[in-house]
């Protein structure tokens, strides 16, 4: 197992998981824009790296992700489309947009062009290249984490958290719940787009299918993180998202290197992890009922 490489990927997906945590846990809304906005970040970042502006590529990956999220938010609030369908519509539309950004080709290689990572490596020629890259990725991920931790304590951040918790209260507090919803989905997808943007320059290529099923990877990371971090504050939740993303990569790398399953089984394994974790409360209740019934029957027999 390539430890440094695994950690690098883990923290890149940590940024994605922060975004997914916002919609899935803070807003209480599964957002399917993710597959499209992640690839949008990749495509935008690759296109700008190709034209010699890799840093701008990361920035625009963030901003375009926010734009994609805002579209989903608008469809939900202004057009009254169910949140799941709104996400699917944006995601589907983005497939064409992403292909257009990649000039119709399903993948774009950055081998010939500079990326933020080649620039960082060049800045520290003496240091171990993987350590330098990992440091850069960790710094970016920590910045995202800290930014969100701060945001969720501002007035706007509290509104986002309250909207996912009790939308009626938010409206009664003379806050425009529609705006809060649009802002939240945009914010979440901004981080998802940024994650894709970093990944494109990290791996040196963008692929139109990079985002397929990425929502499940993010959800799996969120739930794994929640196993590790028990505290339930907003900061603990953000921390759990990053830890979960890294743990997910480590677990996958371990499983793959031990030949537990071939790489193509990854998505199935992720889906099973998420389904199983989300089913736990129901299974617990089921087990409890079974126990009550059994004891009840025994009491009847003993009479």
């Amino acid at each position: 197992m390539n430890v440094l490489g695994t950690l690098q990927l883990g923290f890149i997906y940590g940024i994605l998981t922060l975004g997914i945590f916002i919609t899935f846990r803070v807003m209480n809304m599964p957002d399917l824009t993710v597959d499209g906005s992640f690839t949008l970040g990749l495509a935008v970042s690759a296109a700008l790296a190709l034209s010699g502006r890799p840093v701008l590529g990361l920035l625009l990956g963030f901003i375009s992700g926010a734009g994609a999220g805002a579209v989903t938010g608008l469809l939900q609030t202004k057009a009254g489309i169910h949140s799941l369908l709104a996400g699917i519509l944006t995601m589907t539309g983005l497939y064409s947009v992403n292909l257009a950004i990649m000039h119709g080709s399903p993948n774009v290689s950055l081998l010939q062009s500079g990326t933020v990572f080649s620039a960082i490596r060049a800045a520290f020629p003496a240091a171990n290249k993987d350590v330098v890259i990992l440091t850069a990725i960790v710094v970016l991920c920590v910045l995202c984490f800290a930014g969100l931790a701060w945001f969720f304590h501002t007035g706007a951040g509290l509104r986002v958290r309250a909207a996912g918790d009790n939308a009626a209260m938010v409206r009664a507090s003379s806050i425009n719940a529609d705006h809060v919803c649009i802002l939240s989905v945009a914010l979440a997808n901004a981080f998802i787009g940024l994650s894709g943007a970093v990944l494109a320059q990290y791996q040196g290529y963008a692929d139109i299918n990079a985002g397929t099923g990425i929502i499940v990877v993010g959800l799996a990371s969120v739930v794994i993180g929640e196993v590790a971090v028990k505290k339930q504050t907003i900061v603990a939740g953000l921390l759990a998202a990053v830890i979960g993303a890294v743990a997910y990569r480590v677990l996958i790398a371990l499983a793959l290197s031990a030949d537990f399953f071939p790489a193509y089984m990854l998505r199935l394994v992720s889906a099973v992890i998420v389904a199983a974790t989300l089913a736990i409360p129901r299974l617990r209740a089921f087990a409890q009922d079974a126990k009550i019934k059994k004891e009840g029957r025994r009491n009847v027999e003993n009479q």
């Binding site: 701060w150 945001f151 304590h153 501002t154 007035g155 706007a156 951040g157 509290l158 509104r159 958290r161 309250a162 918790d165 009790n166 209260m169 938010v170 009664a172 507090s173 003379s174 806050i175 339930q232």
Partner: peptide
């Protein structure tokens, strides 16, 4: 009337920071 996953002080700050028209990107 309240958001269950926010603390008492956060519930109060949510409404108070809005009602006193504080800039939304300041710590509430």
């Amino acid at each position: 009337g309240t958001a269950p996953n926010l603390s008492i002080e956060e519930n109060m700050a949510l409404v108070y920071s809005k009602a006193t028209e504080r800039f939304p990107l300041r710590i509430a």
